[in-house]
Design a protein around this nucleic acid. Structure first.
Length: 586
RNA sequence: GGGGACGUAGCUCAGUUUGGUUAGAGCGCAUGCCUGUCACGCAUGAGGCCGCGGGUUCGAGCCCCGUCGUCCCCGCCA
């Protein structure tokens, strides 16, 4: 192959085939860099020595597909190219075959491209020729192999589940597929194989996995596509920690592909803790900034009595930050869900803060002591005003939740602005004990935070009816450097509890039957306790490749408006096709 | 659904501030010369619906309105 020739091959006869990366025509001597996925080799064609090959060489252009028959020559000392792995040798072409011509490509096939993504996607087959894209596809392949190997070792079996299934109105919007045989009826593409994997557990396949495509008809982002790939995993008789161990072992193997040894075991954070300390259920733990809920100091109680909730965060060594930077941070804080932002700086000379004028220096000092501020610290403060809302109780009040949200956004923004995020470093964490439900303020009802098949925690069962907002679920997320790369739960395996959860979600018995009747039936035939997790395969491969956009690790991705620019999908169809399906476009 | 950025040669961009004659650059491409190049070099040349539609104006790449596309974010994504 093109990238494999070394000094040891000197003198051998070889046949190479590949794409013309570059041609350098010196007249009577032509150099051709021949490329395949393994790399490049320089081919020399001389008019004097090989006139026929030389004549072909004159016709060759970028991206022509050519075959070369010749021998490996050692380059003289002056002509060695140390930049290239094959730079000590070259191939003298005795015969040159043009296997196929090529139009001039719309952009150069090289790693350092500035070409607009739109153009790259339109000509994805050319974009994929870039060595970096080849590396990513191959990394993805090795990651898939590692998944299959690791899970097989742990006695999991890969089972395929249907892509044409039944629409379930829970969760994301479904992609629908019309039925020709039964007009007016539709299949849905799965948002995930959730029910199927649970049915596999009931079906005695007690350890299942699948590298599987999932479909969600929602709006897209850098880390979200209309179709994406999950590593879907489920096991019967699950111990949460045993599952975590299997997954951590898998992460270890995956990161080894990138030459990284990760630290295990991963720390556990409860959801409440993550929200309070980091303002996020997917905290970026690469940097140590943490919020603390604080009490209003007695001296300031009068002035700050409007506040229901206050949080403070220490930023060590940032006391020298300029006033204008803080003003800009304040502008940013105003765009968050918090009602109030302030700060103080602690230096050898004491505490400086615009807050002193409002609540008095003594009160600021009390605040500083309250959170253990030290000289050199910049301390940011966020507050939420008291309000009269009457949402049902959840583990944290709605003011707390607004404050958490703002604190999470501000923490990330401050870390970015003040360049506190270290390069490299992989900080995994398990987020556990998620709330079972979240309250939908618009619809005035509870939704399942994970999904409606997640088991409530044993000790919270009695609150399912009386105080659903306070019920914790046996749900967990796997988080890495601030992104969620997986999530799962221990499932409900008892029909009576499943019914109660549906009821808490505001579903009547009839609605539950209509949507999930087959599943409720199945639960009655000896369902083993079971649970699992789904990992975001695209996100994982993207992180392994150092990319923040999953399009970079998907061979043929779609744009943010769910369009395939290369094949121009979606597209209109013949009216005959619509007729057969009994569909008329409004 | 909302907000922001971008759209000029095949590619990447300048030109838009302050409307004015023939819209530029680098790379790529074509042709010629060149036997040690490797981002080859040198010379010559071709290449433009300034995203699209409307408007203002004597005159629009530039101003106004609309629209389409791409990217990022919010909502959404159990």
């Amino acid at each position: 192959m093109c990238g494999e020739l070394r000094k040891a091959h000197v003198g051998q006869k070889v046949f190479l085939a590949g794409w013309v990366d570059r041609r350098r025509d010196l007249g009577n001597l032509i150099f051709i860099d021949l490329r395949d996925h393994t790399g490049m080799t320089q081919v020399v064609v001389s008019r004097e020595k090989d006139p026929e090959a030389h004549e072909k060489g004159e016709q060759v252009r970028s991206e022509f597909v050519v075959g070369v028959e010749g021998e490996v020559l050692e380059r003289s000392a002056e002509t060695v190219n140390a930049q290239v792995a094959t730079g000590e040798v070259e191939v003298r072409a005795r015969r040159l075959l043009i296997l196929n011509e090529a139009k001039t490509p719309p952009f150069a096939i090289e790693d350092e491209t500035k070409t607009a993504e739109e153009t790259r996607l339109r000509y994805r087959y050319l974009d994929l020729r870039r060595p970096r894209m080849q590396e990513r596809l191959r990394l993805r392949h090795r990651a898939a192999l590692a998944v299959r190997e690791h899970l097989s070792e742990h006695k999991f079996v890969e089972v395929e589940t249907p892509f044409m299934t039944r629409s379930t109105p829970e969760g994301a919007r479904d992609f629908l597929v019309p039925s020709r045989i039964q007009h007016g009826k539709f299949y849905a593409l799965p948002q995930s194989p959730q029910l199927f994997k649970q049915l596999l557990m009931i079906g005695g396949t007690d350890r299942y996995f699948q590298i599987v495509r999932c479909f969600r008809d929602e709006d897209f982002r850098a880390d979200r596509q209309a179709e994406f790939t999950q590593v879907d995993i489920e096991m019967a008789f699950p111990e949460r920690e045993a599952l975590f161990e299997i997954i951590e072992g898998l992460m270890e193997k995956l990161w080894a592909l990138a030459g990284v040894q990760i630290e295990r075991p991963f720390p556990h954070l409860t959801y409440d803790e993550a929200m309070e300390r980091f303002g996020s259920d997917k905290p970026d733990l690469r940097f140590g900034l943490e919020w603390r809920q604080i009490a209003v100091p007695a001296a300031a109680r009068e002035k700050l009595r409007l506040f229901e909730s206050l949080k403070a965060m220490r930023l060590p060594k940032l006391a020298e930050i300029s006033r204008s930077q803080l003003d800009r941070l304040q502008d940013f804080a105003r765009t968050t869900s918090a009602d109030w932002f302030s700060y103080f700086k602690v230096s050898g000379r004491g505490i400086q803060s615009p807050l002193g004028k409002v609540i008095g220096d003594e009160a600021v000092k009390a605040l500083a002591e309250g959170i253990g501020a030290e000289p050199g610290d910049l301390v940011l403060l966020l507050g939420i005003k008291k309000s009269g809302t009457t949402s049902p109780r959840t583990t944290r009040s709605s003011a707390d939740r607004r404050l958490d949200e703002a604190s999470g956004v501000l923490r990330l923004e401050a870390a970015r602005r003040f360049e506190l995020i270290p390069k490299g470093g992989w900080h995994f964490a398990w987020i556990v004990d998620f709330p079972m439900f979240e309250f939908d303020e618009k619809e005035k009802r509870f939704n399942a935070m994970h999904h409606p098949f997640t088991s409530p925690q044993e000790e919270d069962l009695e609150k399912l009816e009386s105080d659903p907002g306070d019920v914790k679920a046996l749900a967990y997320d796997l988080v890495l450097n601030g992104s969620e790369i997986g999530g799962g739960s221990i499932r409900i395996h008892r029909q009576d509890i499943q019914r109660r959860v549906f009821k808490a979600l505001g579903m009547t018995e009839e609605q539950a039957r209509a949507r999930f009747g087959f599943f409720l039936d199945a639960l009655e035939y000896g369902t083993p306790p079971h649970g699992g997790i789904a990992l975001g395969f695209d996100r994982i491969v993207a992180l392994l490749s150092g990319e923040s956009n999953i399009r970079e690790v998907i061979a043929f991705p779609k744009t943010a408006s769910a369009v395939d620019l290369m094949c121009e999908a979606p597209a209109e169809v013949d009216s005959r096709q619509l007729d057969e399906l009994g569909i008329r476009i409004k």
